[in-house]
């Protein structure tokens, strides 16, 4: 699709490989806004606790992790109080996992709408990433409350300058989830095999990421294997900045950033190619 100088829009079977069409996406910014609003407004309609569920969910998970991994399995938290340690890992990981799970179903869950009206399909996964951000920030606020409570109790934790990297870490998680999500959603329109892989893949991925254990408990010469996982340095940097414990390295963070950029680029290329005629195969 392109607009030529006479004001004609042209529909042709083939497109350039990378046709981002950012201008078109920006023209639909109100639609992104509406999708985000819809997601948030309708998520807890007809519930009594409403948005409180945003908070209850990670708190219960933290309690369960403390019991199972902390007490039963006895996995170290690097001397950090359990609630703080687990909560930090869970909120960032959940943001990533939720975004990935939801964006990976973009084509299959929206085929009704996509089959009737044209708009840039990227609007949907982008709005999912944004609406999950709202949930993340509410949880982040709870994290800060827990944090303050613990620092008054005199546990001896203090944020450092690396905490300024938080916005970048959130953007990186969003980018990775979006990139992987649109790759998966594009690849599952015709062959659904990958949906099964993704379902338990995300669960396994959490265990390969230092969410419930600190990376420092791994042997120093094997840590690089874990850091090949782009989420590892994101979560570790987050814990390092907030609590001061964790493995931080600029080069691995840069690695994750490049990883994210490539995933996002690749995802956009595949997504753009698939969105043109996925209705015929979905």
């Amino acid at each position: 699709m392109k607009m030529n100088k006479n004001g004609y829009t042209e529909i042709t079977p083939n497109d350039r490989l990378l046709n981002l069409n950012l201008r078109e996406l920006i023209a639909y910014k109100d639609l992104i806004y509406m999708y985000v609003k819809r997601d948030i407004v309708t998520m807890y309609k007809q519930t009594i606790l409403g948005p409180l569920w945003f908070v209850i969910q990670p708190i219960l998970t933290t309690v369960m992790f403390m019991f199972v991994f902390g007490n039963l399995a006895g996995i170290s938290t690097d001397g950090i109080p359990g609630p703080l340690f687990y909560f930090a890992g869970i909120i960032l990981w959940n943001y990533f996992a939720d975004c990935l799970n939801k964006t990976s179903g973009t084509f299959t869950t929206n085929q009704n709408v996509f089959g009737k009206v044209y708009f840039p399909r990227l609007v949907v996964p982008i709005s999912v990433t944004i609406s999950n951000l709202v949930k993340f920030f509410i949880q982040f606020a709870i994290f800060i409350i827990i944090y303050i409570v613990y620092s008054f109790k005199g546990v001896g934790i203090a944020p450092n300058w690396y905490a300024l990297l938080f916005p970048l870490l959130v953007v990186m998680s969003a980018g990775l989830a979006l990139g992987f999500g649109i790759i998966f959603s594009s690849m599952t329109t015709k062959y659904r095999d990958l949906t099964f892989l993704l379902q338990f893949g995300v669960q396994l991925w959490m265990y390969a990421t230092p969410v419930i254990y600190p990376l420092s408990t791994m042997p120093a010469d094997k840590q690089w294997i874990f850091q090949l996982n782009p989420m590892t340095s994101i979560i570790e940097t987050f814990k390092y900045g907030a609590i001061g414990n964790g493995v931080f390295s600029w080069s691995w963070l840069l690695y994750s950033l490049i990883f994210m950029a490539i995933t996002l680029l690749l995802g956009t290329i595949i997504f753009n190619k698939v969105e043109k005629d996925f209705m015929d195969t979905v």
Binding site: P13, F114, K116, V117, Y118, M279, D280
Partner: peptide
């Protein structure tokens, strides 16, 4: 309405 693309043309 650009729901799907033509095969040719």
């Amino acid at each position: 309405s650009r729901v799907t693309k033509p095969t040719t043309g």
